[in-house]
C-alpha cells in the first residue's frame, strides 16, 4: 500500500518536478530568443510582431563582428597556452612522477577555488604599477590561468583511468616508450583531452570579469560588449546577439548529446571502472 503510494510518487512527482526544472533552466534563454524577433525598439516579451531586422543589424555591424572575432582569437590562444603548460603537468602528476604529486595537483586547482576577482584585480594593479597598456597576451595569459585547472583535471582523470596493463603489455612486447605514447596512450586520452580543451575554450570565450578589468577599448570581447550593451544600451539587438550564442550552444549540446547517445553510455555491471 505505502509502497504503491511511494512508487506512484516517483513515477508521477519526479516527472512533474523535472519538467518544471527543465522549464526553469530553459526559460531565460527561450525568452531572449523570442524577444530578438520583436518589431518594437524596446525589449518586449512576448514579442510584438515578427522581424529579422535585429539579426540583420547585428550580423552586419562591424563592432559586433570585431568583438566576436576578438573573443574567438583570445579564447583560442589562451586554451593553447593552457594546453601547452597543462598537458605535461597532467601527465607527470597522473603518473605520480614527482613527490607530493597530490599536493601539486591541489595547487594547480587553486585558481578555480579563489574568487577570480582577486587575482584579476591583482593583475590590473600590476599593469598599473608597470604603467603600461594591458597587452592582448596579458588577457590571454590571465585566461590561461583560469582554464588550466579544468584542462589538467580532465586529462588527469582520463590518464588515471587508463588500464596500466595496456602499457605493461606493450612494454613487454618490446615497444619503445615513445611508441607507447604515440600509439597507445595519446589516442586513448585524445578524446578527453579534446573535451577538456573545449570546456576550457568555452570558459575563456564566456569570461567577463578578466577582460572587463584588463581589456582596453581597442580589444572589446563579446561578453564585455554584451555586458556594456545590456547595462547602457539595451535594445533587441543585444537579444539577437545573445540568441545567436544560445543557438550555437544548443547546436553543440544537441550534437554532443547525440554523440553520447550513439555510443553505449551505460556501463556493463562489474567492470572495474567504477573506482575513484
Amino acid at each position: 500500500m505505502t509502497r504503491r503510494l511511494l512508487t506512484w510518487a516517483e513515477s508521477a512527482v519526479l516527472p512533474v518536478v523535472v519538467t518544471v526544472l527543465v522549464l526553469f533552466l530553459a526559460a531565460p534563454l527561450v525568452v531572449l530568443v523570442a524577444t530578438a524577433f520583436t518589431e518594437t525598439r524596446y525589449l518586449a516579451f512576448p514579442p510584438h510582431g515578427f522581424t529579422l531586422t535585429w539579426f540583420e543589424g547585428v550580423l552586419t555591424d562591424p563592432t559586433w563582428r570585431a568583438a566576436a572575432w576578438n573573443s574567438l582569437i583570445i579564447a583560442a590562444m589562451s586554451v593553447g597556452v593552457a594546453a601547452v603548460v597543462g598537458a605535461p603537468a597532467a601527465i607527470v602528476l597522473a603518473r605520480r612522477g614527482v613527490r607530493a604529486a597530490s599536493s601539486l595537483t591541489l595547487l594547480i586547482m587553486v585558481p578555480i577555488m579563489v574568487p577570480s576577482i582577486m587575482y584579476v584585480l591583482g593583475l590590473m594593479l600590476g599593469y598599473n604599477e608597470l604603467d603600461v597598456t594591458v597587452p592582448t597576451w596579458g588577457i590571454v595569459l590571465a585566461l590561461a590561468v583560469l582554464t588550466t585547472p579544468y584542462l589538467v583535471r580532465t586529462l588527469m582523470a582520463a590518464l588515471e583511468q587508463l588500464d596500466p596493463a595496456l602499457e605493461e603489455a606493450a612494454l613487454s612486447l618490446g615497444a619503445s616508450r615513445l611508441r607507447i605514447w604515440v600509439e597507445i596512450l595519446l589516442p586513448n586520452v585524445a578524446k578527453s583531452f579534446f573535451s577538456g580543451l573545449s570546456l576550457a575554450f568555452i570558459l575563456a570565450f564566456d569570461e567577463l570579469v578578466v577582460p572587463l578589468f584588463l581589456a582596453g577599448p581597442d580589444v572589446p570581447t563579446l561578453p564585455v560588449r554584451i555586458y556594456s550593451s545590456v547595462a547602457y544600451n539595451v535594445d533587441p539587438s543585444v537579444a539577437a546577439v545573445s540568441s545567436l550564442l544560445v543557438l550555437v550552444s544548443a547546436l553543440v549540446a544537441v550534437l554532443s548529446a547525440r554523440d553520447n547517445l550513439r555510443k553505449p553510455v551505460t556501463r556493463k555491471d562489474g567492470t572495474p571502472d567504477g573506482g575513484a
Partner: peptide, 16 residues
C-alpha cells in the same frame, strides 16, 4: 576513451 562523462563536451571548440 575511458572518461565518457566528458565526451559531452567533444567538438565544442571547433563548432563554436
Amino acid at each position: 576513451a575511458a572518461d565518457r562523462r566528458r565526451s559531452a563536451g567533444a567538438g565544442l571548440a571547433a563548432l563554436l
